[in-house]
Design a protein around this nucleic acid. Structure first.
Lengths: 331, 331
DNA sequence: ATTATAAATGTTACGAGTAACATACACGGC
DNA sequence: GCCGTGTATGTTACTCGTAACATTTATAAT
C-alpha cells in the first residue's frame, strides 16, 4: 500500500549497497560488526519489514510449509499443528495455515492458494482429494504429507494410524468386558468415520454379534451425541454399549445417560475416540482411543523438512498407532 | 522447486504473448472467446498454478487479508473466521491464517510473517501488542481491525463488545435471581478475563456484596472448571452462585456438581460465557453470555475490504453487544 | 468506401531481494 | 616491500506477472 521501507532505503541512508543489508538479515556473520551495528540501528529506526515477494521469485526456498486442517475448533488438529510448529520453529521455517471444512473442493482452493505462495512443502489432514488437487500437487513437485490416516493411494508420504484397526481393538475390548449389544454412533460421515465403522463391524461379526449403526450426516456435537443415543435406545432393545466415533458424541451420550438415569458402565458401556480432556472429567471418566496427534505433527514436519533439505527417506509410510485414556466407562 | 509452468510457457505453446494469458485469468471477458478456449485447454493440460510472487512485487493489491487468532481449538474463533470468510469469499479475497497462542510475542512474529506476504489488511483478536507490533503496523499502512473486545488504545478499527458490561449484566441477573454469595471462576488470566472480573466486581459492589475470586493462570479446560469450583467450595462458605469466565469452566463445574450431588440452580446457580453448544446439552441447560462472534467476523472483514476499496468509514468503533443462551442454570 | 469506434492483442518497463561472481582492502609471514 | 589469504563489500543479472500504453484488427455508421 503505502511505500514501506526497502533494503535500498536503508542502504542509501548508510551509504552502502542493499546487498550488504540483505546479508545482514540472512548471514549476519558475513557482515563486519561495525556495519552490522549501523544497519541494526537503521533497520530499527525505519521499522523495516521483510518483503518476501522478490525472494519468492528467485528459485530459492521460501522456507514455508503449507498446512491444511479440516477444522479450526478441534483439539485434534490444534495438537497436530502444535507438533508441526515444534519442528518448523526449530528449523526456521514458517507455516501457512488454511482450513478446508472437511470439503475436498475447499481443500483444492486452499492448496492452490498455498502453492501460489510457493510453499516448499504441504501437510494435509485428509486423504480424499479432487482430481485437480492431485494434478496440481504432481506439477508442484514439492513434498507432501497426508497425515492422520493411512490412505489407499497416497500422494506422497503418509503419517498416521489405522483407524479401522483402532476401532476393531476398541470394540473388541468392549466385547471382552461382556458387552454384547453394542451400537456405533456416528456423525459427519467422512472417511475416518467410515473406517472406524468398518473396524467396529469386523469386531462385531468376528464375535458372532450383529453390528447396529445410528448415524447422522450432520456435524458432530455434544448435543448430537445425546440425540443419537436416544435414537439408538428407541430403535434397539437392551443396548449395553455404545462405540462413539468421537468424544463429542460420547460426552453428549454420557450426559444423556446421567439425565435419563442410565448407569455407566453397568447399564451401558461407553467408548469414545480421540481422548480429549473433557472425557476424563466425566463420572465415570470416559474410556477413549487416543490418537497420537502431536507425534503425528512432529513426524510430518520432520519428514517434509528432511526432504526439502535433500534427505529423502526410503520409507514413505509411518503408522504411529494408538492408545487409550485411563477411563472407567467400560465396566 | 521443479520448474512449474509459467504464463510464458503457455503463451509460447499457443503462439501468443503471456499478457493475453494473464488477462485470461484476471479479466477473461477481455479475451476473445476463441482464444479463451485455446488458453483454457493449454492451462488445463499444463496444470498451471498461479504464482503470486511477481504480482506481490507490483504495487497492486494482494487481495489477501491476514487473520491472527489466539487458538486453533476454540469455537469462538472458528465462528469468527467463518464470518470473515463469508465476506472475503464473496469479494474474491483470500485469507492467510496464523495463531498466536495468546502470546503477544508470537503474535508479533506472525504479524511480521503476514506483512512479509504483503497482506492488504489484518484482523487481530487481541488488544495487547508489543511495541514492535505497533511500530510495524504503523509502518505497514494497511487497515487493521482489532476484534472481540474494545481496547483502550486501538491501533485502527475495532469490532467487538464490552466484556465488562456483559459481565456486569450477567452477574446482575444472578443477583436478581436472589443469589448473593457468587464467586468468579477464572483461568488463563488474559485481558478479557480481567475485564469480566471487573464487571463482576462492579455488579457485586453495587449490590452491596463482596466479590470473591478463584483463579488459575493455567489454560482453561473442563477439568479445570471442576477443580476451581472445588477450591471455591472449600474456601468460601455457603456459595450460591458461580460466574465462570467461559463455558469450559462452567461445564466442568456443572459436572462436578452432578458428581457431588449439588443441585443446579437450587443449591448453586451457574453462569457461563460464550454460549457454546455443550452448555445447552447439560441438565439443566447452562445459561451463558453469547458473544456475536460470527457477526464480529463479518463486520471486521467488511470494514477491512471497504477501506481497501477506498471507502473508509468515519466511525472506527463498533460495539456489537451480547445476548444470552436460553438456559435454566440460574434459578 | 471511409472514417469513427471498439475489441483484441502486443510492447515495454517495472518491482526488490538474491545468487553468483568480482573487486577492494587488511593483515600476517617471509 | 611483496605475496597470499581471507574478509568485507560491490556489481550484474535474473525472476515473471502486471500496469500503462501502443498497435492492430474487426465492426459499425455515415
Amino acid at each position: 500500500m503505502t511505500n514501506r521501507a526497502s533494503l535500498q532505503d536503508i542502504a542509501d541512508q548508510l551509504g552502502i549497497t542493499k546487498m550488504t543489508v540483505s546479508r545482514y538479515f540472512r548471514t549476519p556473520e558475513k557482515v563486519a560488526p561495525a556495519t552490522r551495528e549501523k544497519i541494526a540501528q537503521a533497520v530499527k529506526q525505519s521499522g523495516y519489514i521483510h518483503n518476501r515477494a522478490p525472494a519468492l521469485m528467485s528459485k530459492a526456498l521460501s522456507r514455508t510449509v503449507g498446512v491444511v486442517i479440516p477444522s479450526l475448533s478441534n483439539q485434534v488438529f490444534s495438537a497436530l499443528v502444535d507438533g508441526i510448529e515444534t519442528i518448523t520453529n526449530a528449523e526456521a521455517f514458517d507455516i501457512l495455515l488454511a482450513h478446508s471444512g472437511y470439503d475436498p473442493h475447499i481443500e483444492e482452493r486452499k492448496i492452490e492458494m498455498l502453492l501460489s505462495y510457493q510453499v516448499d512443502g504441504l501437510i494435509l489432514c485428509e486423504t480424499e482429494h479432487t482430481e485437480r488437487t492431485r494434478t496440481m500437487l504432481k506439477q508442484a513437485g514439492i513434498p507432501v504429507v497426508e497425515c492422520m490416516e493411512l490412505p489407499e493411494s497416497p500422494l506422497d508420504m503418509v503419517v498416521g494410524l489405522d483407524h479401522k484397526a483402532a476401532a476393531f481393538d476398541a470394540v473388541s475390548r468392549m466385547i471382552k468386558s461382556n458387552k454384547r449389544r453394542i451400537v456405533y454412533l456416528a456423525a459427519r460421515l467422512d472417511r475416518r468415520t467410515m473406517l472406524r465403522q468398518q473396524g467396529y463391524e469386523q469386531a462385531m461379526w468376528e464375535a458372532g454379534l450383529t453390528p447396529q449403526i445410528v448415524a447422522t450426516p450432520f456435524q458432530s456435537s455434544f448435543s448430537q451425541g445425546g440425540s443419537l443415543l436416544k435414537q439408538a435406545l428407541d430403535t434397539f432393545d437392551r443396548l449395553d454399549g455404545i462405540f462413539c466415533t468421537n468424544d463429542d458424541l460420547a460426552v453428549g451420550a454420557m450426559q444423556f445417560c446421567q439425565n435419563a438415569g442410565i448407569r455407566v458402565p453397568d447399564d451401558l458401556a461407553v467408548m469414545g475416540y480421540n481422548g480429549l480432556d473433557i472425557g476424563l472429567t466425566m463420572q465415570p471418566p470416559l474410556t477413549s482411543v487416543v490418537t497420537p496427534r502431536q507425534a503425528i505433527g512432529i513426524k510430518s514436519a520432520r519428514l517434509i523438512i528432511d526432504v526439502i533439505n535433500g534427505k529423502p527417506r526410503k520409507e514413505k509410510l509411518f503408522d504411529l498407532g494408538f492408545s487409550y485414556t485411563d477411563g472407567h466407562s467400560l465396566g
